[in-house]
Design a protein around this nucleic acid. Structure first.
Lengths: 334, 334
DNA sequence: CCCCGAACGTATCACGTGTCAAAATCTTTT
DNA sequence: AAAAGATTTTGACACGTGATACGTTCGGGG
């Protein structure tokens, strides 16, 4: 029953076995690392046959028998996707490739349950969570056999602090550098759909509390001039100066635009700080003061976790304990 | 051989069959639309059993037997990923969900062959190409049974023109609105890795040719102030005015920043136009003149193609023939 | 009464793989 | 030379599904 029409059938492990003159089981063993038990001569025969046939194991076949697909799902918040996260994804893809894994990117949609279901449907070997999966989701995932990476970096780093809390703290310190002033937290979105906002706000608040200042206000700043102006107008006080800690650089740019419209001088009346150190933020005038996040630390953590997961070992303790993962880029807006 | 430890086994179609008191084959038939042959009573019994057990067919099992996974791969250029594309991906995800398909996002990496291999490895039912897959890649994909979507929108729309060519034309027309001036095309990247650049440049050139102007220069503008200034300095002429058509809004912002550094007045000495109508572009000062792309047209095309693919019918001819898919947003930079 | 077709349901194969237990072969020891 | 051990190889099963082709039942027409 040969199908004359249509695309050529991909070679299977059976084809490799036939060409190498061994059984399919032998091929499978050798191609999956258990090959040390075989004499070099046999191993080479199989390896050569496989590469000559350009044999690629069927993902479906593997997934069916192992109950797990060779896939890593990267879950991203559907908030602005800066080049920051882009680079991170590229790097994860590269790393995963080293372990023979494919990477799938999934944006966390409006419905968290749907996102979780979609992720679980892939039966991934691991899930890289850049935001969008709650802690509950992670335990559900763990129960289904998929490790969440970075193992806890989004919740607490080596020093036991949530990185986003630290970001909030640093933003507050920077905004209060030249003396006390009321602080405002400028979010982009509804709090429920913002994975990082609450922790950052907490960081801000920790600083104002410590210094006996009133607790920061919170506004939602849409990325258009009219909406942003309205939002900023809510918190700007006649003749007084305020410091606005923004969700990211884009929000900061919106706040600055609003300030221009409202005739506020920067940084005197309106000090602004962003997060992400976007390229655009350094190209606008005035140049943005912003927080640069050191992805390399996070990336090393991810790499280590990934290594651990694929090797079925416990996550390695990273050595980045005291390392600063965030830097203030001093612009002209604070 | 019951595994006491570990997660609960997911229900299989066999479990559904048992609960409904029928055979597994019946379940398969009814759950795959071939159920019209069965009396309503049986059908309901199976359907209820399936929903009570929260039965989800195993993707691996399906993929193995059908030779195709219920997946749509969205290939994105690894250039800046604006909210533009983000929305598009969200919409594709929603649409695919309606057909019971999952969406996988893949960024086109440095190595096109590797990207293609990764995409083919998923054996997707269709591939949505937002840039990064060459025409050759598409035919390879087609040979493997995966349709490329939008079927030809990236190459020619209903009027037979490449959209990117049209974008180039419009940019030129806008920049030459107030009289002739030398034009420059500001790319972000190396031309080989830029999926849209060449066609846009061709659009520019078509206009300058038609008007008897010198052909546009081409510069690569990195997104930092020093690099951008160097690049712009290359093409700025003492006392004369130039018009710069940019790859996207971010590049336009970089060109503007360079112009400020070089002491060029905008739009008199340096007119700039971007593409994408980014939110940030409308928040900076001066407000960017830019080209807004109407995703709804592209999206309808994708939706139609998707429908066609899942229904195994030929792509429907969309009715958007004469519709403008791009709009100039008049800012303060041209 | 017999046969037939329609209606309904199911046994069975095929997909490609990983792995266990057992078989086959080779090597060493008694 | 036979037994015991070590090394190398393989047969066979399981994974969960879609679909083809085949059975079974039942009512009715010849």
């Amino acid at each position: 029953m040969v199908t004359e029409t249509g695309q050529a059938r991909r070679p299977t492990s059976f084809d490799v076995a036939k060409k190498a003159g061994v059984s399919r089981a032998t091929v499978s063993h050798i191609l999956n690392g258990q090959g040390s038990r075989f004499p070099e001569e046999t191993r080479n025969r199989v390896l050569n046959a496989a590469s000559e046939l350009k044999y690629q194991p069927s993902p479906a076949g593997r997934a069916l028998v192992t109950g797990r697909s060779d896939v890593i799902v990267v879950v991203m918040p559907n908030t602005t996707f800066g080049s920051n996260l882009q680079d991170l994804v590229d790097e994860v893809t590269r790393l995963a490739g080293l372990h023979g894994l494919s990477v799938v990117v999934r944006f966390a949609g409006r419905d968290p349950a749907e996102t979780l279901a979609a992720v679980m449907n892939f039966r991934p070997v691991a899930v890289v969570n850049f935001g969008g999966l709650s802690r509950d989701d992670q335990t559900t995932l763990a129960a289904s056999g998929a490790a969440t990476i970075p193992s806890a970096a989004r919740d607490e780093d080596a020093s036991g602090k949530d990185p986003n809390f630290l970001i909030g703290q640093r933003m507050a310190e920077e905004l209060l550098r030249d003396g006390p002033r009321p602080l405002v937290f400028a979010a982009l979105l509804d709090e429920r759909t913002d994975p990082f906002g609450p922790a950052r706000y907490a960081g801000l608040k920790a600083v104002t509390d410590a210094r006996g200042l009133p607790q920061p206000a919170r506004i939602e700043v849409p990325l258009d001039i009219v909406g942003a102006t309205l939002a900023v107008d809510t918190v700007s006080v006649e003749g007084a100066s305020i410091g606005v800690a923004c969700y990211n650089d884009h929000v900061a740019i919106a706040v600055l635009a609003a300030g221009r419209t409202l005739g506020l001088a920067t940084p005197e009346d309106l000090a602004v700080i962003g997060v992400d150190a976007t390229e655009v933020g350094q190209l606008v005038s005035p140049r943005l003061t912003t927080i640069a996040l050191d992805n390399s630390v996070l990336m090393r953590k991810i790499a280590a976790d990934l290594e651990a997961v694929t090797k079925h070992k416990a996550p390695i303790q990273t050595q980045d304990a005291g390392r600063e993962f965030l830097t203030v880029i001093q612009g002209e807006t604070s």
